[in-house]
Design a protein around this nucleic acid. Structure first.
Lengths: 352, 352
DNA sequence: TTGTATGCGTTATCAA
DNA sequence: TTGATAACGCATACAA
């Protein structure tokens, strides 16, 4: 059962033509006899010929490898994004090197250096929260490699970018709350120095403004994305006289905290309080009331990022100008914002 | 800034020795001048020499690539396992090809075929729920490739295997419930035709038996791993006269369903009912009461699986005999099983 | 249209 | 100890 892979020489011998001609036939060289081409392809199929990637790459001086740098691979948002990248890569016969920065700028720089040394053809990256410099990203471009940023991007680097339309997503989310009849909507956001969270805030404000709704200064808070943040922010706001009748949160964990605070204060969701999260975590639909949220389509996001590279590759002639592409989010309407439809399940809200 | 990578020829020229000698020096050939070796290594460092993987692999006739086949990459258990595999690979300078079978045997077979064709050095796989044949796995071995199964394994294939000790984990879980003072413990399990779930059932039975506790026939049910399964099973059992005072569930989703059923029936957890899950999902600690569960250490599991291959590689001489390695699970004790310690948070149980 | 020869960067074989 | 050279499988410049 010893395994000897078929090469173009084997094909050549079997067909009584030269190896180089086989190579050309396989690569659809235009100056080639159509009939021979078909014969070659048929034979290749028959003998189960598989191109030797190492020889090909060595010859071409490329690696057919994409490097990915993300904060954490086992966070659902990034896991999905990687699933998308992976899909595009395997379709194009590309390899993947995955690096985790663990939210550390130092590790991120090291990962990028490694990938440069490994001579990957392209680097797809989502920077850490503490990335406040772009030196290492610029080095990628200086090395004639393709750089594609996604989700958390730095704008002081002239690269392709793929982002969610966070502003629009927030806008739609808040609009939904307004349509449901909520009027005093508060926002609990993420760290403001990150663009994604700032955009969500902007979307929130835009929707409120357009609807002619006031935003008391206390209605906009900021914090990390934890349940604790949501719990304490909601508890504080809900105990005031002019308390909100809905919360738009920048993460599902925050929203979860809000739900708990509401339950503790015997405030009924969604009847007396609407709660909207962000991220569409798997646990959203497990909660009662189930949590309305924003699906970020992160798999699409990853797939799209990788496809940008493959498109560049396909149209190698036209020197592509870095653009920013946008992946739309989608509203996942669930019970926590259904003010109008008081469902049976929602009645048993204060359970679990 | 054009990038020309340093080769061993550059090193040779810089040091006035031959390229082949450089190669040997870099590879720690024993018949080599120690001083020269050091010089070469120093120069390599200085010039930032990086071995060309394609040339190396082409010459060696290997790919330095491991193929991974899992049902779903964006399921936390597998995402973690892949994170572990990835870690081991990048440490050993190996590439990774990730394939998803999407729980379809047909896709799994196709993925394996692809990986065989790609000539990967090793395949690490966790089979789908519907994999009832091992032909394709045997083909891997026939092709002189290394096969390593993890988590869901098929025993009719003579390969290395890495598994959780599901029996022991279940045993510990149930023992914990017993220690807490629960006596009438029921088990809601997963599909019995899968070994992992059968093992958990065995562990449950062993613990009960050792403690001299009876298991009424109604106390053992089976189903898929969803919340619905848990909800309906618990509702049915809890409304009977001889109802259980604890549930050991084969998944956290099942346990979640049990918690909800209990809340709906105004049964207090953990005071009147203990609930133990399995999988240690991220949402466990978000619940109130937080859900006790079993951590499967899936990242370790993946890392270990990959390391098996690298160990084989290191000790190439001794033809390694396939073994089965075991990764222990860990009990994550939380509020849902703290019968003795009625904490303040647990008091507000029926919230969320 | 087709074939021959060369080189991509390594390692391994042979010779010195 | 060292060096020259072939070979891994492929794509391509050059010849025919």
């Amino acid at each position: 059962m010893s395994r000897k892979r078929i090469t173009i020489y084997d094909l050549a011998k079997a067909l009584n033509i030269s190896a180089s001609y086989v190579s050309r036939a396989l690569n659809n060289d235009p100056f080639i006899n159509e009939k021979v081409k078909e014969q070659v392809k048929a034979k290749a199929e028959e003998l189960n010929y598989q191109q030797n990637a190492n020889a090909f790459n060595l010859r071409k001086g490329i690696t057919r490898t994409i490097g990915v740098v993300v904060p954490k691979i086992n966070e659902i948002f990034f896991a999905n994004a990687i699933a998308g990248i992976e899909e595009a890569c395997s379709k194009n016969n590309y390899n993947l090197i995955i690096c985790q920065s663990a939210e550390s700028l130092k590790k991120e720089i090291k990962a990028v250096e490694t990938l440069i040394q490994q001579n990957v053809d392209c680097i797809i990256i989502s920077v850490t929260m503490e990335t406040d410099s772009s030196e290492h990203l610029r080095r990628v471009i200086e090395n004639k490699m393709h750089l594609i940023q996604f989700d958390r991007v730095r704008n002081d680097v002239d690269s392709f970018k793929v982002e969610n339309d966070n502003l629009q997503a927030a806008y739609i989310a808040v609009q939904h709350l307004i349509q449901q009849g909520y009027k005093k909507i508060a926002h609990i956001g993420g760290p403001g120095f990150l663009k994604v969270f700032n955009d969500r805030k902007q979307g929130y404000m835009k929707a409120m403004q357009e609807a002619g709704l006031k935003i008391p200064s206390t209605y906009m808070t900021e914090g990390d994305l934890t349940k604790t943040t949501g719990h304490s922010a909601a508890t504080a706001l809900l105990s005031k006289s002019n308390h909100p009748d809905a919360f738009f949160c920048s993460s599902d964990n925050i929203a979860f905290g809000v739900l708990q605070a509401a339950a503790a204060m015997k405030i009924k969701v969604p009847q007396e309080l609407g709660v909207m999260g962000f991220q569409n975590e798997p646990f959203d639909e497990l909660l009662i009331p189930s949590l309305s949220s924003i699906e970020q389509n992160s798999k699409e996001l990853g797939k799209h990022a990788a496809d940008i590279y493959f498109n560049i590759l396909a149209s190698a002639k036209t020197p592509s100008v870095p653009s920013t592409e946008v992946i739309q989010c989608a509203l996942e309407e669930r019970d926590s914002t259904r003010k109008n439809v008081v469902s049976a399940t929602a009645e048993s809200a204060v359970s679990m």
